[in-house]
């Protein structure tokens, strides 16, 4: 393959500098997203998913956030070398982001039409009139009647707000769309609608998608590849089919084990014992080691390195180096 992947994150390290020392939010992140594909990004709250996404957008609150090292290659160009002006034209124009909570993501004192128009006029040469028309077209596209362009966010339901957020994000046909838990704040029926909408639009606009979620069901349905994140690290990364069919990392297996089965008995929910470690005070060695049921002596001594267990299936674990399949 001669073409560079659309997004290639290499050894990204992001820290939050606090008075009492630094907190490693993202540690040695490696990810790759090919053009037109969808990458799922799964992890618990506090695993560093949103931090990584904001890092790609260069929207981390600085200070305290700081990208310490690594490279974020977008179309082969390192975003970390870009000036703020260059980043501004990339944000929205080439990389767009959908945020978690549609209730608070829209400006309460501007009409939704204006908020979509703002995006269009920032990244295109259309006249004001054409921008407004295109904004209305975008509303149509996400299933909101165009007459409602003059409405304010407080007049819309949560699902409609998220549709508006999607309309804003896709208004300038970005090459990459980062969706940060786009449906977490919505109830289940609306979730399905919004996901269907995103799927359709993603194909229509041939946009690549980085889907951040903690919902394995959504990822299974949506994503070509999946990365499992734990304590700022990608612990397992493979194609979705491979990962769901053959999970290797004990954390991933724990996650799948925690999904209640409808057909199964009514026993207690299975859980992974313990809590996500405090990112400012990670355990030595493998960060998952205190909660891991197969941890050996080397796990608390040395941090594991990512190994390619199978072709395209990476795992960050001492005990699973391919030959050691349990």
């Amino acid at each position: 393959m001669s073409d560079p992947p659309l997004l290639d994150i290499q050894d990204l390290v992001i820290r939050y500098e606090k008075r009492k020392g630094a907190v490693c939010a993202v540690e040695g992140l490696n990810l790759r997203l090919e053009r037109g594909k969808t990458l799922g990004f799964v992890g618990e709250t506090g695993a560093g998913k949103t931090t990584a996404a904001l890092g790609i957008m260069r929207l981390l609150p600085e200070p305290p956030g700081k990208i310490v090292s690594g490279r974020i290659l977008f179309n082969g160009e390192n975003l970390l070398d870009k000036s703020e002006d260059e980043m501004r034209s990339i944000r929205g124009g080439k990389i767009a982001m959908i945020f978690q909570d549609p209730m608070t993501s829209l400006n309460p004192v501007a009409t939704i039409g204006d908020q979509i128009t703002e995006m269009i006029s920032l990244h295109s040469d259309l006249s004001r009139r054409d921008s407004i028309r295109k904004a209305s077209d975008m509303l149509d596209l996400v299933g909101i009647r165009r007459e409602r362009a003059g409405d304010y966010p407080h007049q819309l339901s949560g699902g409609m707000k998220q549709r508006v957020v999607i309309a804003i994000a896709l208004a300038c046909s970005p090459e990459l769309l980062i969706a940060d838990e786009p449906t977490t704040a919505l109830d289940v029926t609306i979730q399905a609608q919004v996901l269907d909408l995103m799927k359709g639009l993603k194909e229509a606009f041939s946009t690549s998608l980085l889907m951040i979620s903690h919902d394995l069901g959504i990822v299974a349905e949506f994503c070509d590849d999946t990365a499992i994140m734990y304590a700022g690290r990608v612990v397992e990364y493979a194609s979705t089919a491979e990962l769901f069919g053959n999970p290797i990392h004990p954390y991933t297996r724990g996650l799948f084990g925690s999904i209640p089965s409808i057909t199964g008995g009514k026993g207690d929910l299975r859980t992974i014992p313990g809590l996500t470690p405090d990112a400012s005070n990670l355990p030595p060695g493998c960060p998952f080691q205190p909660r891991c049921d197969i941890a050996g002596p080397e796990c608390s001594k040395e941090a594991p390195r990512p190994t390619e267990v199978k072709f395209g299936h990476y795992c960050l674990c001492h005990l699973n180096r391919g030959e050691n399949q349990p």
């Binding site: 929207l59 034209s89 982001m97 945020f99 608070t104 993501s105 309460p108 703002e118 957020v165």
Partner: peptide, 14 residues
């Protein structure tokens, strides 16, 4: 600190 300010930044606004 509100989310919609972050949205505006994500649009690439000045």
């Amino acid at each position: 600190r509100q989310d919609y300010i972050r949205t505006a930044r994500a649009k690439g606004q000045k």
